[in-house]
Simulated assay, not measured.
Amino acid sequence: MKKREIGVCVIGAGRAGMIHAANFRKNVPFARLVAVVDPIEETAASAAKELGIDRYYTDYRQALLDAEIDAVVVVTPTIYHRDIVVAAAQAGKHVLCEKPMAISVRECDDMIAACETAGVTLQVAFMRRFDESFVEAKRAIDEGAIGEVVLVKSLTRGPSQPMPWMYDLAKSNGPLAEVNSHDIDTIRWFSGSEVSEVYAIGGNYRNRHVAADYPDFYDNVSLTARFASGAQASIDGAVAVRYGYDSRVEILGTEGVIFLGQTHEKTTIVAGPDRLLRRPFMNSWRSLFKEAYLAEDTDFVAAILEGRPPRVTGHDGKMAVRVVEAGNASIKSGAPVRL
């Protein structure tokens, strides 16, 4: 008899980790949140208390020995993804791995091979593919609503200061990975083709206080790409922009265009005696993509129970990392990079 409930453990109790954990605790059908993991015991204990569960670990390897855990959600700094995913696969646990999938294509290959060998599901957390408006746009493209895709433009700008480890490109791969992985997956998905050439430029404009220690760090990046199909793309990424969380997409076709993006967090508009209109700008990705996270988590469990491939695969994660590597190489060399 097939198991009808999946025991889940979330590894990493930060902002994104707690979104996943809350979903599996209350809102994902046929799933049960068994435990959380965080190397800082105070954080792990606090997360477990907030979630209303009685089990937490400070070492993911202990969690992998727990027979009640069938699947893990990996929400740690990128440098740990490869080792955790490979160990999880070897322990027979299904895996939902947050983006960016890994630091290098080689690490992605290790993760994919481990999950294939173990026969477990590997899904990469590109939640925008589960956002209702993104799904509708993809359907419109596939139905020929705008003709042949010519250009995909995608931008993500975040208000937050980078976490200290993110300044070190050896640990984070920079904003192209941490911020723009979603954009890279978006342009691949909407174009239906693989990137064949990139040219990128980056600069540090808002975090100059770290320039001496991290001279390669950039907080603003612009990447232009060509696809194997001949279509074009551009990506704009930024951190610490302060004005709000900004995520927008434009898909230009031979016969039309599609616009995606919501810059306002609320529908309320205030008009005062100064005759100015005021409307709050989108504050966080947690607000904009709240429903997409839930749809992503729900589909992960459904894929496991139905024995089908996930909607976002390890290959998708690997292709995004491939573009990140090429983009960073282009920033460093000042020249286009062919893939």
Results as ranks from 00 to 15, higher is better:
residue 158 G to W: 07
residue 44 A to P: 06
residue 304 I to G: 10
residue 34 V to H: 00
residue 77 P to Q: 07
residue 276 L to A: 15
residue 16 A to R: 10
residue 192 G to W: 01
residue 68 E to H: 08
residue 37 V to Q: 08
residue 306 E to V: 09
residue 149 V to H: 00
residue 240 A to K: 08
residue 305 L to V: 08
residue 155 L to A: 10
residue 42 E to N: 14
residue 330 S to P: 01
residue 145 A to R: 12
residue 197 E to T: 15
residue 15 R to Q: 15
residue 74 V to H: 05
residue 211 A to V: 14
residue 44 A to F: 07
residue 172 S to L: 04
residue 84 I to S: 02
residue 29 P to C: 06
residue 197 E to D: 14
residue 202 G to M: 04
residue 252 L to C: 11
residue 276 L to N: 13
residue 144 G to K: 04
residue 227 F to E: 05
residue 223 L to K: 06
residue 260 L to A: 08
residue 60 Y to G: 01
residue 156 T to H: 00
residue 210 V to I: 11
residue 113 A to D: 09
residue 33 L to G: 05
residue 294 L to N: 13
residue 223 L to Y: 08
residue 246 D to G: 07
residue 23 N to I: 00
residue 228 A to V: 14
residue 232 Q to D: 10
residue 75 V to W: 01
residue 243 Y to H: 12
residue 42 E to S: 15
residue 170 A to V: 14
residue 299 D to C: 07
residue 96 L to F: 06
residue 257 V to I: 10
residue 69 I to L: 08
residue 195 V to Q: 08
residue 272 G to M: 10
residue 161 Q to Y: 07
residue 172 S to W: 02
residue 79 I to T: 14
residue 125 A to V: 02
residue 179 V to E: 05
residue 296 E to S: 13
residue 194 E to S: 14
residue 263 T to W: 03
residue 249 V to D: 12
residue 6 I to T: 14
residue 226 R to C: 07
residue 235 I to R: 05
residue 275 R to N: 11
residue 310 P to I: 09
residue 73 V to W: 05
residue 57 Y to N: 15
residue 20 H to P: 00
residue 237 G to F: 00
residue 29 P to G: 08
residue 44 A to E: 04
residue 168 D to T: 01
residue 48 A to C: 08
residue 232 Q to A: 12
residue 258 I to E: 04
residue 27 N to G: 11
residue 246 D to F: 09
residue 339 L to H: 00
residue 145 A to H: 10
residue 308 R to G: 12
residue 309 P to M: 06
residue 153 K to T: 15
residue 134 F to C: 15
residue 338 R to I: 12
residue 179 V to D: 02
residue 196 S to H: 01
residue 32 R to C: 07
residue 90 Q to I: 05
residue 192 G to I: 06
residue 326 A to T: 06
residue 125 A to E: 04
residue 330 S to G: 07
residue 209 H to C: 08
residue 201 I to R: 14
residue 327 G to R: 01
residue 244 G to Y: 01
residue 289 F to G: 04
residue 254 T to M: 06
residue 210 V to D: 05
residue 175 P to K: 00
residue 180 N to I: 15
residue 166 M to Y: 03
residue 60 Y to T: 11
residue 296 E to K: 03
residue 143 E to M: 01
residue 169 L to F: 06
